[in-house]
């Protein structure tokens, strides 16, 4: 897909996100908007996905395809919208987000058999470990697929992340690309104030990872370039970490750059203002 087309998809995904959280008056728009460009770039351009007649075909094992894991499960709206827009399930189902009897639970789950989801996440710190297991299964199966996993920067405060960070280089898991969404915000405020992660790049390097940075994590061209670079470094005995600098709430001016929109839904007025800034490109659900 051309960059312009990818940007159009991203605009629609952002509309979906704010409409979803508005509809149920709960959920996490900030991080979702910030990671929209990454997920669209992955699912619509970079990931190798099993398809039939132009539509993705989902099975749990994901044999022969690239897999994506979302460790910071609270940004489920961006994942649900991206999956639906990519064709994993009907976009109309986005209207059920966080509502009773929905497959689109507040945090992602396999329990409801939603296509595209392979593990429950939400309790933070677990996704990197799971992704490493999936990456090792691919190696055992001589499957060339790549594992992508996204974590939050606040999430780096969980101890399990560092267990996994030690494990990956030790076992030379070099078919995995991990992202940290560096938006600098968490629920209680700026990450540097709540619990300063300091230099995550240096930390991961010290643990034995190859670290690259995407400084403009909301610029489609920069993301595609960064993903290309990350992929080119696979297969050399080291896992890859991408520091993805994003703006929380990116795309909606009054939500940008503040932890206040981590887990708050817009009211009717705010929804209208947000949608006014986001072009409807693929038709609202």
């Amino acid at each position: 897909m051309e960059i312009e087309q990818l940007e159009k998809v991203a605009s629609q995904v952002r509309r979906d996100i704010v409409r979803m959280v508005h509809s149920c008056q709960s959920g996490h728009p900030g991080g979702s908007l910030g990671c929209t460009d990454l997920l669209v770039a992955l699912y619509f351009e970079r990931m190798m996905l099993n398809e039939q007649d132009g539509k993705p075909v989902f099975d749990m094992n994901g044999t022969g395809e690239d897999l994506f894991f979302l460790s910071n499960g609270h940004i489920s709206p961006v994942w649900y919208s991206t999956l639906a827009r990519r064709g994993y399930f009907p976009v109309e189902e986005l209207a059920t987000f966080r509502k009773l009897d929905s497959r689109l639970q507040g945090h992602p789950t396999t329990h409801e058999h939603l296509e595209g989801i392979r593990i429950a996440s939400g309790s933070l710190g677990q996704g990197l470990s799971v992704a490493l297991g999936a990456a090792m299964a691919k190696k055992l199966n001589k499957d060339k697929g790549i594992i992508y996993v996204l974590m939050g920067d606040g999430e780096q405060q969980e101890g399990q992340v560092w267990e996994a960070a030690s494990f990956a280089p030790h076992h030379e898991v070099d078919n995995l690309i991990a992202f940290i969404d560096l938006n600098g915000q968490q629920i209680d405020g700026p990450t540097v104030k709540v619990m300063n992660n300091r230099d995550l790049g240096k930390k991961y390097e010290a643990f034995g990872w190859e670290v690259i940075s995407i400084e403009e994590g909301n610029d489609m061209a920069a993301i595609l370039k960064g993903l290309y670079e990350a992929k080119s470094r696979l297969g050399h005995g080291r896992p890859i970490l991408v520091l993805l600098h994003t703006g929380m709430g990116f795309g909606v001016d009054f939500m940008m750059g503040s932890h206040k929109w981590h887990g708050v839904a817009p009211n009717d007025e705010q929804l209208a203002a947000a949608l006014g800034q986001l072009e409807e490109t693929l038709g609202d659900y």
Partner: peptide, 22 residues
């Protein structure tokens, strides 16, 4: 797979291994 003294990670890695039929 030797996990070292990292039980939380071991459980997560185990869960991941099942995705791929292990």
């Amino acid at each position: 797979i030797q996990c070292g003294i990292s039980e939380a990670n071991m459980i997560g890695v185990s869960a991941g291994l099942t995705i791929g039929g292990k």
